[in-house]
């Protein structure tokens, strides 16, 4: 992955074409319904349905394989740890399904519900937010924030972070190569010695970044960044009917499913 556009992966999917503001609202909707389910309803089927909807959003936007690996791995890890620790740390009643011998952890049906709901509570919003970044040009996200009256000087900071992601990756590779050529073997040795070796990568990186930050500040100033109170956007974001419809569709889906599932599929 070169991250040449930050996290953005160019494409022409539905999610690529909707207004970034609609995507942000959608992600907030996912967050709200996930929190509600994970904390109050605790219905893993409903949680799983929200999770499936964000996965569909992600897959339909055809990201690079990096993202599949990342979220595949993350999903497995979070489900695993959630199933391991929630039942152990919160004593709940319910039908015991399984008891771990020595440790004495009881897996009741309630515990399983809790664990799954909590896992989906974490996973769905993360994937939804990532989908925003994967399908929106950083410049459009910037414009979305400015349209919502965020001060533009502040709103540009995360955009710069995205822009310089590839630069930082190249810098890290260069430093690691340079240190390797001086026989610094990062993959070998005890943990303390490995930590010391990573410091040998981190310190030059910070020094170079500080120098770069100064250069960047000067470059931004010479391009008039911050010179005026407001700025124009030559390609203006336009909210279309389509964006409203998609938002209504998702919100209605989440609300209707909430009612249906809690009524008829209550676990």
């Amino acid at each position: 992955m070169s991250f040449e556009y930050g996290l953005y992966v160019p494409g022409r999917s539905v999610f690529h074409r909707i207004d970034p503001r609609a995507k942000i609202i959608w992600a907030l909707t996912v967050l709200a319904f996930s929190i509600y389910n994970g904390n109050y309803v605790m219905n893993p089927i409903y949680g799983g349905m929200i999770y499936a909807s964000v996965l569909i959003a992600l897959i339909s936007s055809k990201p690079t394989s990096f993202w599949y690996k990342l979220f595949g791995g993350l999903s497995v890890a979070i489900l695993f740890f959630s199933l391991l620790f929630w039942p152990a740390s919160v004593p709940l009643g319910g039908k015991p399904l399984l008891v771990i011998p020595v440790l004495g952890w009881k897996y009741t049906d309630l515990a399983l519900r809790l664990a799954l709901s909590k896992a989906f509570l974490v996973l769905s919003p993360i994937i939804a937010i990532a989908t925003i970044f994967i399908t929106s040009r950083p410049g459009d996200l910037f414009q979305a924030l400015v349209k919502w009256r965020f001060p533009y000087r502040l709103a540009y900071i995360p955009i710069l972070a995205l822009r310089f992601l590839p630069t930082v990756i190249v810098e890290i590779r260069t430093i690691i190569d340079a240190q390797k050529s001086r026989a610094l073997e990062l993959e070998k040795g005890s943990i303390p010695s490995r930590i010391r070796k990573y410091v040998a990568v981190f310190v030059p990186l910070m020094i170079r970044m500080m120098k770069s930050a100064l250069e960047l500040g000067v470059a931004l100033d010479s391009k008039g960044f911050g010179a005026m109170k407001t700025r124009t956007f030559s390609k203006e974001l336009r909210w279309r009917i389509y964006d409203t419809l998609i938002l209504i569709m998702f919100t209605a889906l989440y609300a209707v499913m909430l009612i249906v599932i809690t009524r008829f599929l209550a676990w």
């Binding site: 953005y8 822009r163 470059a219 391009k223 960044f225 956007f233």
Partner: peptide, 22 residues
């Protein structure tokens, strides 16, 4: 590297003009 501050060629040239509110 350090004076290109956007993520597309178009945006890069438009950037200063937008800052000056053209």
């Amino acid at each position: 590297e350090m004076q290109l501050v956007t993520t597309s060629v178009y945006e890069e040239v438009a950037f200063p003009l937008e800052n000056f509110g053209l």
